[in-house]
Computed example of a mutant assay.
Amino acid sequence: MATLFTKIVHGEVPCYKVAENSQFLAFLDISPNARGHTLCIPKKEVDKIFDLEEEIYRELMLFARKVAIGLEKAVSCERVGMAVVGLEVPHVHVHLIPLNSMKDMDFSNNYKMSEEEFAKLADEISREVVL
């Protein structure tokens, strides 16, 4: 059965897209730790990050780096943190989280945003990402 992220890739479930190329997709997390919390995923469904082919792993990290650079330009923060947990959805995903304090990395925190705020922020970030 396809994961939630595979359904997003196929357009079956909507997302707030910030960047995309032929292999990867970046979109806003709908339960963000902080404003701008973004997920980067491979379009190919793979459960665990270290099960990715080595070349795909490298390319995912390069894609995430480009998204993080754009994210830091669009969202006021001290830095962008990165985490790979992999327990929530069995599909590789890299969390990019704008950080102003360590509490921004606490996955029990949720930053509340309206649909309009999500859409506006996704557009702002996507304009800053250079792939």
Rank of each mutant, 00 (worst) to 15 (best):
Y57H: 07
E78S: 13
K120M: 15
L71I: 12
R79P: 14
S101L: 03
D106Y: 02
R127K: 14
E72K: 08
R35I: 15
N100M: 10
I69P: 01
A122E: 15
A122Y: 06
L52I: 05
D104F: 02
E116V: 13
E78Y: 06
I97E: 01
M61I: 15
I8Q: 02
M82T: 11
L62F: 13
T6L: 12
M102D: 14
F5I: 04
A2P: 14
S31T: 11
T38L: 11
P98N: 10
L71Y: 04
N21K: 09
R127L: 12
V75G: 04
I49D: 00
A83V: 07
V130Q: 11
T3V: 06
F107P: 07
A122S: 12
E88I: 08
S31E: 15
V80L: 08
P14M: 05
L52Q: 03
F27I: 06
V92F: 00
R65A: 08
N33H: 07
V46L: 05
I41E: 01
E55Q: 08
V84K: 00
A34S: 12
E116F: 15
I30A: 07
G36F: 01
P90K: 08
R79N: 12
T6H: 04
D47M: 04
M61Y: 10
A26G: 11
L96V: 11
D47W: 02
A119E: 13
G36P: 04
G70S: 09
P42D: 12
Y111C: 11
N110V: 12
A19E: 06
A64R: 01
K73T: 13
M113S: 08
E117G: 06
K17M: 14
H93V: 05
A119G: 05
I49C: 05
L121P: 01
E88Y: 09
P14F: 03
Q23A: 10
D104N: 12
V80D: 00
E115K: 15
F24E: 05
E128S: 12
E20I: 09
R79M: 14
A26Y: 04
K7P: 00
E55D: 14
K66T: 08
Y57A: 10
